[in-house]
Amino acid sequence: MAEISTEEIAQLARKSVEIRRNILTMVFEANSGHIGGSLGSADLLVALYYHLMVHDPKNPAWKKRDRFILSKGHCTPVIYAVLADCGYFPQEDLQTFRRPGSHLQGHPFQPKTPGIEASTGTLGLGISTAAGMALAAKLKKENQYYYVLCGDGEIQEGQVWEAAMFANKYKLDNLIAIVDRNYLQTDGNSEDIMPLDPLAPKWESFGWQVHSIDGHDYGQIVAAVNRAKKASQPVVIIANTIKGKGVSFMENKVEWHGMPPVKEEFDAAMKELDHV
């Protein structure tokens, strides 16, 4: 039983190319921003916003919408590209990314940007915030889901494990965390900087259901989320991804964590995406 059709998968794949082009353009024009993690998590956000989540860009405050919280707040290029494409705000706003006066801050600022559900940026905040929101939804007897995307480097933060305990205590089965497991963080390989493996047992021992998937495979993403919705406990999806995915010379290169491309690199990257 396929949970997503071949045609739908092809549509998402085409969408992800557009999103990746916009990520590159935003960071190139701003000459600032985080490309690697944005490209690497693009398929996850595309699957969520264009297939899995119930949301209405014309009504960002709709009470029954599913919420997405970007805990790895530096990856604003991908969320802004997706939100603009969905129609939360005009596409041309993307040209103001990281510029004075823009609502598109370097890290997500909830009061200003339609579609941004929580202010994040310093790492570890988002999963706690999402847990608080999910608990609030339970108190209100509402049924929407709360998705939160964490970086793998990010989960070295102690606050993440505080939140993991908290979500287990309050049985937040409406909370679905996704770890963008690309093994790279600012200073290098996560297993050199501060080892995380074995990762799944860590989450399991904190009372979470764990699904490990290929974070670029739409079928697997959709199946994992659908399984997560049936759980009676918080769920984490460990999404194995390639940082910089989609641009060959940026893939798995730690340098592209937070470096903007120069003109030649930008042109080469856009050319690659033309031929997808």
Binding site: A118, S128, A131, M133
Partner: peptide, 11 residues
């Protein structure tokens, strides 16, 4: 941060 999340949901 949990408190901030609950405030975002109207508490």
């Amino acid at each position: 941060s949990v408190a901030a999340g609950m405030a975002l949901e109207g508490f």
